[in-house]
């Protein structure tokens, strides 16, 4: 049975770049709270956080190099969570 494992070696320089991107995004999500953008503050912070998790999943957790199937599963989960958040905001935005 194919267990979906094949070795793939990621260069150190890639990891360094990812670290830098993650740090920049972290500071951005703190910085955005200093601006007064109304609901878009939360939207922005969530957006930065989502990009960060995608990068972590793709590279650190090897989703990019693994079978497509796992990526599809993850995408499904992300969609579910997004929908849950949207439904929650049906309360907050219209209260």
């Amino acid at each position: 049975m194919d267990n979906g494992q094949h070795t793939h070696i990621v260069k150190y320089s890639t990891f360094v770049w990812i670290l830098i991107i993650l740090l920049v995004l972290t500071f951005s999500s703190v910085a955005i709270t200093q601006l007064d953008l109304g609901v878009y503050t939360v939207t922005g912070a969530l957006l930065f956080a989502s990009v960060k998790s995608v990068i972590v999943l793709m590279y650190f957790m090897h989703l990019k190099f693994d079978k497509k199937f796992y990526a599809i599963m993850m995408a499904g989960i992300a969609l579910l969570l997004t929908s849950v958040i949207i439904v929650t905001f049906l309360d907050y935005l219209y209260r």
Binding site: L80, S83, V84, V87, L90, D91, L93, R95
Partner: peptide, 23 residues
């Protein structure tokens, strides 16, 4: 799957928005 999107029925009297109530 659908069971994920009905939690608000425990909160009908707690002061949610009308849109949320109907949904």
């Amino acid at each position: 799957f659908v069971g994920y999107f009905v939690w608000g029925h425990h909160m009908f009297t707690s002061g949610m928005s009308g849109v949320a109530l109907y949904t």
